[in-house]
Design a protein around this nucleic acid. Structure first.
Lengths: 348, 348
DNA sequence: TTTGGCACTCCGCCGATGCGACTGCCAACC
DNA sequence: GGTTGGCAGTCGCATCGGCGGAGTGCCAAA
């Protein structure tokens, strides 16, 4: 063996074989089986020596003394680093993705279908998220009086995301005032981000306090009721494939916790926000989610930001067991991330 | 025993005790245990005789020869018929419901929270559904040109449900035409149901074919692209508490099928439509869902239509194991169904 | 009609046993 | 020195028989 527990070509090959075998079967794997599937005729004893080294390096572990070995989190990281450069989307997957996503008419539907197809390909949970409205650019806004003291606000983003919200107002505003307010926002703030509009409006209202006119009054009220969406509001998030988790070998209690967490969308949002970086270029694979939540032990997050015309409009990800098919999943996430840009940009 | 396998007061009491015990523990129950919990001092032997009769009448069955007995579907039906008249909402449940539902600003949020609170109380899956737009009354419609050949249609229902849809048009329509079309619909069809509007518009277009003006042309195109929503489109449906099903004693395979079915919202919609009747007044309990789908064996549906001002605007239901707590669930569904009317009506 | 008694059935738990899979170490070999 | 075969030792797991407990059904007596 190399003097400093380093990883040579033989170690690499054996480690890769172990990881792939474990991903495929879920069974710990021993030196004998490994020797049989290894094309170079290495004997079990040699492989045992290598495995022993890898164990010492913290890449393999044994569930119990007389069992085979399974990869540790470090081994998965190593494996993913090796393949992530060369992950190739298979033609079938490509067909499935395009077949599913073709013909989605609006962004919401596109995202919904994306989470579905991600769960199909990865056998994990597919997630898509429109990152909190605040960061996206406004296309236009529309207000409508619904009834006494209630107003419907429809916000259309440049990215195509549509969001409607019913505001309960303190006082009743006539439709005509609403139309003036909407026209004012549309004329002056098209292309701004919601947060920028919000703070600009607040300043404006402060400044004009002297000549406190009707328009400003309406705007203030609308803002205060969250017409532009508040930070708290759950951004659109779509999950699919939670049922896939049942197949993972978890006991019932952890499975239930897991599903329960997924039902609380807010927590999934936090998870994605915590681990996915708007600036990252490629797909990111996070191994070792137990730091975020104990019941996410043995689970990984594979995700990427979704950009439309250079601007981040959300993210897409897969949450699945560490035993997930990294090849397929990484390539699919990467492909769909690029597809987002292409499809939503051209339809603009 | 009564000559014709009829149910006398003693049979009733024993059957009720068995059903309640089985709901509570999930264990088959024997004559001895039953004798101990029975306040009248009946001996196990007597109870055995009664149980034997009940078995013959098809109300009890044995998992195997030397086990206790469990209720059949017929027994649950009998039990539910007995209690459904007198189901009383507990004060705690009432508090939970009102606490959760208070402050929901729009109908969607109200429905979301309802499904959540239903799952909390019943420990089953809470479902709320806005019945297919087509049957509801229009408040107003709004069109907005999104970009080349794409149009945003926002439909607001009388019931408060808001629905947005992006239409891909064959040709590009200018915003001014859209506004004329929207005004035409709003002025003429406020309060009509969507299906009625759709068919009326179609007739109108036929009739006016001679003087085929711009307005008609726009309307025709908008209709054809489904501006008013097509029958196929999944109505808004909210599920919560699927993780509760993990606790039910199902094997993994059936559990996975079950969760998978719930993920396909469309199938849940069909289920509710098939078993809940818009005309029914009270809560309906459907025992024996296996007719609808084999993996729904041992599951029940407890649901009611949701009315606002006399008009059906959707339905709410719980899907849970036959061992569900009928008392709590029935009373909660019933209470929330009435609450829907009260809250959404007054806020009009 | 109700009750106690009794024989019988059958599930589920427990401990023993044997098998198989694997490791680690050592000595021999290339 | 790297590689190999051999061998002893460990441990999980499936299998099996025995046994206790829960429950039924039937019968005869009150």
């Amino acid at each position: 063996m190399p003097p400093s527990g380093q990883i040579g070509p033989r170690e690499h090959e054996i480690l890769t074989a172990i990881v792939e075998s474990y991903i495929a079967t879920g069974e710990p794997i021993g030196s004998r089986t490994l020797a049989r599937m290894n094309r170079e005729g290495l004997s079990p004893a040699t492989i045992r020596n290598v495995m022993s080294d890898l164990s010492e390096a913290g890449l393999l572990e044994q569930p119990h003394t007389s069992a085979g070995r399974i990869p540790t989190a470090d081994a998965y990281r190593y494996y993913v680093d090796q393949i992530s450069g060369q992950a190739q989307l298979s033609p079938e997957d490509k067909g499935v993705i395009e077949g599913t996503l073709h013909g989605a008419s609006d962004v919401q539907e596109f995202m919904e279908r994306t989470s579905h197809v991600l769960s199909l390909i990865s056998h994990g949970v597919g997630v898509t998220m429109a990152s909190g409205g605040p960061k996206n650019a406004l296309d236009h806004i529309y207000f409508s009086r619904l009834g006494d003291k209630k107003i419907l606000a429809v916000v259309v983003m440049k990215s195509g995301v549509v969001r409607d919200r019913v505001l309960r107002m303190g006082a009743d505003l006539p439709q005509s005032d609403l139309e003036i307010a909407a026209r004012y926002i549309n004329d002056n703030f098209r292309g701004w981000t919601l947060t920028a509009i919000q703070s600009e409006l607040e300043q404006l209202i402060q400044r004009e306090r002297s000549e406190y006119d009707r328009l400003m009054q309406s705007l203030e009220q609308l803002c205060r009721q969250g017409a532009l969406g508040d930070e708290e509001a759950a951004p659109g998030i779509y999950l699919d494939g939670a049922s896939n988790l049942v197949a993972s070998e978890e006991d019932k209690q952890r499975l239930q916790q897991l599903l329960h967490t997924l039902e609380e969308k807010q927590r999934v949002v936090h998870l994605l926000n915590a681990y996915l970086d708007a600036k990252q270029e490629a797909v990111r694979v996070v191994i070792g989610l137990e730091e975020a939540a104990p019941y996410l032990r043995n689970f990984v997050l594979i995700g990427a930001p979704a950009r439309v015309g250079g601007e981040v409009m959300g993210s897409l990800a897969v949450i699945g067991p560490t035993r997930i098919d990294y090849q397929h999943t990484i390539s699919a996430v990467s492909y769909i991330a690029r597809l987002f840009d292409k499809i939503l940009n051209e339809s603009e």
